[in-house]
Nucleic acid binder design. Structure first.
Length: 943
RNA sequence: GCGGGGGUGCCGGAGUGGUCAAACGGGCUGGACUUAAGAUCCAGUGCCUUAGUGGCUGCGUGGGUUCGAAUCCCACCCCCCGCACCA
């Protein structure tokens, strides 16, 4: 029979709320700041993914609170955004009303689930009291030159009718509606996040964030060290008249340049080809590339000759200049093409019949003595290497680079080869008779040298000629030794990179350079439901920031704007027309709004001081509560929100408003909830509504199930049946406590001595449980914690008929507290039933008491578990033979007799009459089994 | 292609050198209770063998290291996620 979870849960929701149980403020206690990425208030309310996310965070918050930390665990809503506006257009509702309604729905669901938020700190980004500070930060950035307006090619989504940030373009498609993104030349507002690229990269190392997120951010920032090299443009007479600056990370390949490629979107390209016979062709090519989408552009390498020629500063060779689709407007937008050592250049050279000049040679030569019978198997594995097998001498020569060397050696070891390394040349020998640990290394070397009769230079020449003879089918991109490179010939790539850079610098033809992949953050949006950008355009004064005292620039009501005619704010004359803050003359307001990712870049700071109208937040409070100690959200924010909020935090730090310069110490990205192996989605119709589950099982069961079914960061496969296991557990714990308090637990007749042993066992194992659950919570292994609690409770159930009620009450109390992070309602209810008047949620977290550990009893119990299995085995075997056993006789050695007696009840559940007798003096022993009794293993007789 | 994470029983999922035929939960089979169903409890749930035993097979596939491997190494196959021509 199910307990009345609805009644119990509603009761505690009310109690917590009335007592503001989870309200916090700055104090002397150590703090713990727990934040979940706040939700967008959609019309559907909370989905199961939110529920999982918040259940994890709430468990951590509750645990830390009970541990004595001053826990700040707030709640809020990311309330600006396109869906509200689209709903407005489609159903003619006010976005504000739509949003606040949705918030109300979500809020009630969150309350129903029992999350221990400090509700007094609730915020929503769509209210002027919040977005005023977005504008304030914008102006601060404007003052510092971190925000600027620029005409640039931008990503435009025709469906959403707005521009997008780079981070919002996924595979060339809009992140929201998946439409193909177009490139448009528009004048827009940018935040100079690139100024922070280095700092964003460097401080990543100190964060306790998932490695995957860090890697994604590093890649997104994409720092590359290289060299800019000047290639002079020359006319037919060989006179230079201009230059092209290329960027490369491999200056060591400079002598192998056979052409130059300029990106089609390079701003100087058209100017450069002006008047050339190729001008028209180049123009057409640029247009063609512009029309290509991402996939088409990547399909094959296309390009045209520009008619230009450039001079290689190292060789003075004149090489042609091309423009091609595979060169992107990254770094200088011009590359030096080295087809022998770059796969892209190689493919282009092949396609357009351009020369290929080799300048890097693999620097390691591996020689192996390989028996003919092994060679076939071995060479199959070597398909990625250049190699040659001399069948007469049984010698295998393999080219390797410093990077592929390890791989090659492993490969050869795999085939029983023995390595000997003389520094430059690796000798491998696949005859087991030559084990290096058996033969003196020197001897082996000499032995092999004689055998091989080689010297290094010969091998190099040999390999080089081998290479030249065979048609190259791919570029050699790894490092190596330079050849055909003038005074640099013979250097290793690493040496040459430095030497060539220095040489270029000395002749003024090159310089070190660092480029980043990350681009400035485009924040203008041609949409209504967002933060107005606090800028005014005056014919006389130009771009004028709105003065701080005039903030907020309030978003006009939806009824005052018209949708569907471009930028909605532009249709509201009372908004647009204003006066210039500088000259007081007529002026017009900026009608774009900010990307909503601005809103979410600092909300965790506003939680700390959400009613402040002087400042975004108070420094002292923020210094106390920051940084976030536990931040949880989806990994999809890895290169968006999670970079922006780090940037904002650093910027705010630079303003002197915050001691810290990183938002979150620890980040956890929860796994998705799947059904049938795929993510739940409306379009697939495989969604589970948390409210339905609550109706059937209650919030405690839902929460505990979500925490039990998988570790937080792992994918969780939803199994309706699986919930029932948790539901059973919650039910039986509740019934146990109620029965206990009504003295309704039926007791077995047991001696005091036996009761004492059982009490010790339960208490002893309880200490282990406390220690384990604590440990698991500290390390976010929530499912393990629940597993152990369930396992322990099973033991309690087994022995509750023997143990003393006062011990059981003690245990029930501890369990109630241990369960609080997972099933807070039943925790609170049971705590209360046990006679406590405080909130379990605010009690001190249990600590293990070592003095209650009793290794002897635990050992004895383990012995009984074994005994039980033994009896079962015997019973099963003789039952198969057609006998029906009714009694079992257990002959224990005298010192252990008490222990087995203590656990007699446990054995009685087997359905047999249990007789425990001293092995030394059994009352009944028809088959003389008693003599077999050993320590820890009593003898058994069944009949 | 590169980077990251995975492939374990009927299912979800633990386990990362021996204590593993494998936690915890679910399912299934048999038993107890019950007029019956449900709930609950007990037992079983790879194969063979056995008075509590012993053996074989088994953790994607194939090799290897080791006295000993689900766990370590190598290769291969498959799945998921991210990045994707960044010079």
């Amino acid at each position: 029979m199910a307990y009345d979870f609805e009644k119990i849960e509603q009761k505690w929701i009310k109690e917590w709320e009335q007592h503001e149980a989870f309200k916090v403020s700055k104090s002397d206690k150590p703090k713990f700041y727990c934040v979940e990425m706040f939700p967008y208030p959609s019309g559907e309310g909370l989905h199961i993914g939110h529920t999982r996310n918040y259940s994890i965070a709430d468990a951590i918050a509750r645990f830390k609170r009970m541990q004595g930390y001053n826990v700040l665990y707030p709640v809020g809503y990311d309330a600006f955004g396109l869906p509200a506006e689209n709903a407005a257009i489609k159903h003619n509702v006010d976005p504000e009303k739509w949003t606040t309604n949705n918030i109300a729905v979500m809020r009630s669901q969150q309350k129903r689930l029992g999350f221990s938020y400090d509700w007094s700190r609730e915020l929503a980004t769509c209210f002027p009291s919040y977005y005023k500070w977005n504008q304030w930060f914008f102006l601060k950035m404007f003052e510092r030159g971190l925000v600027y307006r620029k005409k640039a090619p931008v990503n435009y989504c025709p469906q959403c009718k707005t521009v997008l940030a780079n981070e919002q373009v996924i595979d060339g498609k809009c992140w929201r509606c998946k439409s193909e993104v177009q490139t448009k030349l528009m004048e827009q507002w940018f935040i100079k996040i690139t100024d922070y690229a280095d700092r964003l990269l460097e401080s990543l190392d100190k964060l306790d964030w998932p490695e995957q997120v860090k890697v994604m951010q590093r890649n997104w920032i994409g720092k590359s060290h290289g060299v800019e090299i000047d290639f002079e443009l020359v006319d037919e007479q060989g006179n230079s008249y201009d230059k092209l600056v290329v960027f490369t990370t491999r200056p060591d390949t400079l002598f192998g340049v056979t052409f130059i490629v300029i990106a089609p979107e390079h701003e100087k390209l058209l100017e450069l080809v002006k008047g050339k016979p190729q001008e028209q062709e180049v123009k057409e090519f640029i247009e063609k590339v512009q029309k290509m989408n991402l996939a088409e552009r990547q399909e094959s390498k296309l390009g045209v000759f520009t008619g230009l020629y450039a001079r290689n500063p190292a060789t003075n060779e004149i090489v042609p200049v091309y423009t091609a689709n595979f060169v992107l407007p990254y770094a200088t937008g011009i590359v030096m093409a080295v087809p022998a050592h770059d796969q892209r250049d190689f493919e282009f050279a092949k396609a357009y019949g351009l020369p290929i000049k080799q300048v890097i040679q693999p620097n390691l030569l591996v020689v192996a003595y390989v028996k003919p019978e092994s060679i076939n198997k071995l060479t199959q594995s070597l398909k990625d290497f250049y190699f040659y097998y001399d069948a007469e001498k049984f010698l295998l020569y393999v080219k390797a680079s410093s990077t592929s060397y390890a791989q090659l050696v492993n490969l050869l070891k795999q085939h029983q080869a023995v390595i000997w390394n003389d520094g430059e040349v690796i000798v491998l020998y696949n005859n087991r008779q030559f084990k290096p640990d058996e033969v003196q290394a020197e001897n082996l070397h000499e032995e092999l040298k004689k055998l091989l009769q080689f010297d290094q230079q010969n091998w190099r020449d040999f390999i080089a000629s081998e290479l030249l003879q065979s048609e190259m089918n791919k570029a050699y991109e790894q490092e190596g030794i330079l050849i055909n490179s003038g005074q640099f010939t013979g250097m290793s790539s690493a040496e040459a990179i430095n030497a060539i850079t220095e040489w270029l610098e000395s002749i003024g033809k090159g310089r070190k350079a660092v480029y980043y992949r990350i681009k400035d953050w485009l924040i203008s949006r041609q949409r209504y439901w967002g933060t107005p950008i606090p800028i005014v355009y005056c014919d006389k004064c130009g771009i004028v920031p709105v003065p701080y005292e005039q903030l907020p620039v309030v978003l006009p009501k939806a009824s005052e704007v018209r949708f569907g005619e471009g930028n909605p704010l532009a249709t509201c004359e009372s908004f647009v027309n204003t006066s210039c803050p500088k000259c007081n003359g007529p002026a017009k307001r900026e009608t774009d709004t900010m990307d909503t990712f601005v809103d979410s870049s600092w909300y965790f700071l506003r939680y700390i001081d959400n009613n402040n109208d002087e400042l975004p937040f108070d420094k002292e409070k923020a210094d106390y509560f920051m940084p976030i100690d536990f931040y949880i959200g989806g990994i999809e924010h890895a290169t968006g929100h999670l970079i922006y909020c780090r940037f904002f935090t650093k910027f705010i730090h630079d303003l002197g408003m915050l001691k810290h310069d990183e938002p979150a110490r620890k980040l956890l990205c929860q796994g998705m909830v799947t059904l049938g192996g795929v993510a739940m989605s409306k379009s697939l119709g495989n969604v589970v509504n948390p409210l339905d589950v609550i109706k059937r099982y209650g919030a405690d069961t839902l929460r505990a199930y979500l925490l039990f079914a998988a570790l937080p960061e792992k994918q969780l496969e939803w199994q309706e049946k699986g919930i029932e296991g948790i539901f059973r557990f919650v039910n039986s714990f509740y019934s146990f406590v109620t029965a206990l308090m009504q003295d309704a637990i039926v007791k077995y007749d047991a001696t005091d001595q036996i009761v004492t042993i059982v009490n010790s066992l339960l208490l002893s194992k309880l200490q282990v449980l406390i220690a384990n659950v604590t440990q698991y919570l500290e390390t976010y292994k929530l499912s393990y914690a629940i597993r152990d609690i369930m396992e322990y409770f099973k033991l309690v159930e087994k022995y509750k008929a023997i143990a003393s009620d006062n011990v059981l009450k003690q245990i029930a109390g501890v369990l109630s507290l241990l369960l609080n992070p997972f099933t807070p309602f039943i925790s609170e209810e049971c705590w209360h039933l046990l006679g406590n008047t405080s909130f379990a949620s605010l009690e001190a977290w249990p600590k293990p008491d070592e003095s209650l550990r009793d290794q002897h009893v635990e050992k004895a119990y383990d012995a009984v578990v074994k005994l039980r299995q033994d009896i079962n085995n015997i019973v099963r075997i003789i039952s198969k033979k057609g006998k029906k056993p009714t009694s079992v006789y257990i002959y224990a050695i005298d010192s252990e007799l008490q222990h087995y007696l203590a656990f007699k009840q446990e054995l009685e559940t087997l359905g047999l009459s249990i007789n425990i007798e001293p092995a030394s003096n059994p009352a009944y022993d028809p088959q003389n089994k008693a003599g077999k009794a050993k320590q820890g293993r009593p003898a058994i007789y069944v009949e």
